[in-house]
Design a protein around this nucleic acid. Structure first.
Length: 271
DNA sequence: CTAACCTCCTGTTCGC
DNA sequence: TGCGAACAGGAGGTTA
């Protein structure tokens, strides 16, 4: 499941190879979450001039406009020459002078959307309201604490909502709350300064570590170069229901919050 | 305004 | 062994 680290790993592996690539052809497979927003041939001749990330969106700036790419639940990008023939789950393919960019996405929750720029209404709708970037300087402790106090939502669900801070999906939400010693069900507003500081630090630490490990590969995520991640092998709580906590030995528990699984250690994490 | 719920999709896992 | 049901989940849209 691509969360911020997986998207950042993709960006890091793709940014340099694709910079300066001129689009020569675009082919679409089955429909993705949203329509492309232009005719495929409209992209031909445009040059990719940079690759940024906002939350879990990749933003490919072209000489004319902007391509928004979201990996959804099961998406991954590949870029290069000599890719194998496109399969049934390859739904967007872009031939360029530097290689072929391909979106592989079995569940098709992902999307590729072309807009004229970040001020385009379609882009605004998607990007407006996103929270702070956790790995940037804007993610300050004071801003984070202020945001926590404003919500009585369970902290797990506040993190997932992405309005306060972006990029923390289901896997990493469980992990950062374990590191901070906070139960997923704890109301955000009830988190005091000490634990808020721990949570703030945990978000940065866990996400940065996951990026350095190439992200998590639960099924078939890989970087644009096809390299799998390793973070999934060292989760503290995610996916470890019933297994002993690495810190205290207590069996890890799982509960459901908003149709999502939350994993936690009942001893290490306090309400 | 917030928050809970619904929806999209398909590969995998589970229960009988 | 087979097969349908349940599950996984990002996140925008809808409803209360």
């Amino acid at each position: 499941m691509p969360e911020l680290p997986e998207v950042e790993v993709t960006r890091l592996s793709l940014a340099e190879p694709i910079r300066g690539a001129r689009i020569e052809a675009v082919a679409l497979g089955k429909p993705l979450r949203w329509p492309l927003g232009c005719a495929p041939q409209d992209l031909v001749g445009q040059e990719v001039v940079g690759l940024r990330r906002r939350g879990k969106y990749l933003l490919a700036d072209t000489s004319v406009g902007l391509l928004l790419v979201h990996l959804g639940m099961s998406g991954s990008l590949r870029f290069g020459g000599g890719l194998p023939p496109a399969g049934v789950h390859d739904h967007f393919e872009m031939l360029t002078t530097r290689g072929t960019l391909r979106l592989h996405d079995p569940r098709r929750f992902g999307a590729v959307v072309y807009v004229h720029g970040e001020q385009d209404p379609v882009a605004m709708k998607l990007l407006d309201g996103l929270g702070m970037e956790p790995l940037s300087d804007e993610f300050s402790l004071t801003a984070f604490q202020t945001g926590l106090k404003k919500s009585r939502m369970p902290i797990k669900q506040l993190l997932l909502a992405g309005r306060l801070v972006v990029g923390v999906g289901n896997i990493y939400a469980s992990e950062v709350l374990f590191m901070a010693g906070i139960r997923p069900t704890t109301s955000a507003a009830r988190i005091g300064p000490v634990r808020a500081q721990k949570l703030h630090a945990a978000i940065r630490t866990v996400l940065a570590r996951a990026v350095s490990m190439g992200g998590s590969t639960l099924r078939d995520f890989s970087s644009a170069e096809g390299v799998a991640g390793h973070f999934q092998n060292q989760t503290s709580v995610y996916g470890r229901d019933g297994a002993p906590c690495h810190v205290c030995g207590t069996p890890i528990k799982v509960l459901r919050q908003g149709q999502r699984s939350s994993y936690f250690c009942p001893a290490c994490q306090r309400p």
